[in-house]
Design a protein around this nucleic acid. Structure first.
Lengths: 146, 146
DNA sequence: TATTGTTATACTCTATAACTATA
DNA sequence: TATAGTTATAGAGTATAACAATA
């Protein structure tokens, strides 16, 4: 039943899949907890994080991988709290661009800083290892929207 | 304003954070899509995936990072569909252990296979690179539950 | 007393379908 | 006609608080 010296017993496809699942779960657990400290849900935090540049309702729906009708409510709630605002596009009056307010930018910076500080495992990696991890993730998830 | 030859412009902490966010988003986008093909929500798929061994309602809540009261409804819906069943623990009659049925195990295998097949980026990595990625993720997310 | 699981409640997220206003 | 955004609706996930059963 034992396999003497075949492989280091480490990197089976299954174990890598498990590790990817665990990593994704751990990342979102941390992100959601830090968003909650600012009184925001996971989706609200994700939406704010996508608004480094203004984005239309439609493109937010695509980036958040949900139906466009959901974005109305999510942006409504963020707008009520003064974190974003809508702006009709001059080029195409059907389109509404969503922008961060100053308060929204502060919230994004706060969440990002806390998530970063909370991922203590990153500090244990050397600069080379961080670079390597980034390169590998970039190749596994090339077109990934974030 | 330009910084001539300081760094290769690659692995800033911010860019690594962004890449982690994108990777986690891409993983769950894929997982949710494959769970949906089996008529399951993301949380239902995650719950099934955690049941390689039976788990109490309480420990499911911890692993899924949500309040225990939510697990009742999630497990109710999975039980109605015949994918799991509850079993009172003989050792402590307060505890209910949740087990996969045969049909539930099939669903897990189906989802896992499709997620794996959908992550085409993994195939582009050599065995060494996959091992390296797994090792790095293991160190960044050491205690990660999955 | 403390813990496990459930119920009740209110809010958020979600997809679907139908609608409006623009193009 | 086609697209962007909204509304209405029903189902699912979420935290909080209160509860019964068991330890």
């Amino acid at each position: 039943m034992t396999e003497p010296t075949v492989l280091p017993a480490a990197a089976t496809p299954d174990r890598l899949m498990d590790q990817l699942a665990r990593a994704a779960a751990a990342y979102y657990r941390q992100f959601a907890a830090m968003a909650a400290e600012s009184g925001l849900t996971l989706m609200q935090g994700k939406t704010l994080s996508l608004l480094r540049e203004p984005k239309s309702m439609r493109s937010l729906a695509e980036l958040l991988a949900c139906d466009a009708s959901n974005i109305t409510g999510i942006v409504d709630r963020l707008e009520t709290r003064g974190l974003v605002r809508r702006e009709v596009s001059p080029a195409d009056r059907r389109i509404k661009n969503v922008l961060l307010t100053e308060e929204g930018e502060q919230a994004v910076r706060r969440i990002r800083a806390r998530v970063s500080a909370g991922l203590t495992g990153l500090e244990r990696l050397s600069a080379e290892e961080r670079s390597s991890l980034q390169d590998l993730l970039d190749r596994v998830f090339p077109d990934a929207a974030g």
